[in-house]
Write a protein that binds this DNA or RNA. Sequence first.
DNA 1: CTCATTTCGGTATACTCTACCAAAATTTGA
DNA 2: TCAAATTTTGGTAGAGTATACCGAAATGAG
Lengths: 151, 151
Amino acid sequence: MVEDQDAQILAHLQKDGRATNQQLAEEVGMSTSACWRRVRALEESGVIQGYAALVARERAGFAMSAVLHVSLERHDAKFVDEFVSRVTKRREVLECFATTGDADYHLRVVVRDMAAYNEFLDEFMFRIPGIRHVRSNVILKEIKSSVVLPF
Amino acid sequence: MVEDQDAQILAHLQKDGRATNQQLAEEVGMSTSACWRRVRALEESGVIQGYAALVARERAGFAMSAVLHVSLERHDAKFVDEFVSRVTKRREVLECFATTGDADYHLRVVVRDMAAYNEFLDEFMFRIPGIRHVRSNVILKEIKSSVVLPF
DNA sequence: CTCATTTCGGTATACTCTACCAAAATTTGA
DNA sequence: TCAAATTTTGGTAGAGTATACCGAAATGAG
C-alpha cells in the first residue's frame, strides 16, 4: 500500500512538515510534479492525517504532565462508550490507549500546574461513571517525545 | 513569556502546521507581517520546536504498538545515562518518560508486527544493562493521540 | 515632553504551489 | 507479439506565498 518512494516522502515530511515540494522532490529523487502528486495522494488517502507545529510543552507554560492508568468497574458498551467519549473531548488528555494488562487504559495528560491537575482529577476523571481505579504517575522528565514512525 | 496573541498562533499552528501566514494572520486578527514576525520569533526561541506531518500508524504499516514499564536495578548515573542514551537513539521508541511510581520509565514503542516487537525486546531492551523489570502492555486500540496542547 | 526603542502595516521581489499539457512508461487483452 | 488503453512521468505558466525592507505608529524611560 505504501511503497518505497512514499515511505521516503513520509520519513522526510515527519521530520520537516514544512519542507517545500522542491526540497522533498530533490531529497527523494523525483520531479517536483511527481512528488507533489504523491504527497497529495498520501493526504487524500489519509496516510498523512495532517500537519502540526510541535510546541515545547514547558516553554509554552504547561509545567506538569502525568501518565494515568485507569481501569473500569465493568466493560459494558455503555460505560466504555461514555469513558471514550469523555476522554476524547477533554483537551488535557493528549493520549489514550486501551491496553492489555492490569489497567484498561493508559492516558497522558498535560496541564499548566498542579492545581490544574487536581482540578482535572476532581472535576473530570473521578466523575466519569464506572471507574474502578485511577493511578497517577507524574512525569519527572521527558526523555523522548517523537511523532516520527521508524520507517 | 508566551502571551495571548502567541497562544492563538500556537493553538492554530498545532492544528494546521501548514497554514499559510495569511490564514494565520486573519485567524488571530493581525497584519501578515506582524504575524509572520511572531511566528519566526516563536521558532527561533524554541517554543515551536519544528513541524511534522502526522502519519496514520496502521495505514503506514505499523500494525503493533505497546506501552512498556521499565524499572532499573540501580539508579547510578552510569546506568541511567546508558539507558537514556540507548532509548533515545532507538527509533521504535517514540516516547520515554521518567515517572513517579513503581516503574521508573514509561515508553511507547511502535513496530511493524509481533515479530519485530519480539526482536525489539530480545535484541534491544533485554540487553540494556541494569534493567530490573520490563512489563509490556500491548495497545489494543488508540482512543486518542494528539500533539495539541490545551491552550 | 523628548528621545530611544520596539512594534506596526504595507509593499516589492523572489520563491513556491498547483493545474494542465503532451510525452513516456506501463498494463491490458487478443 | 503487438497495439490500444491506462497510468505515470517531467515541464511549464499563472496564481499564490514567503520574506526582507521601508517609514509610520506605538510604547517606555528619563
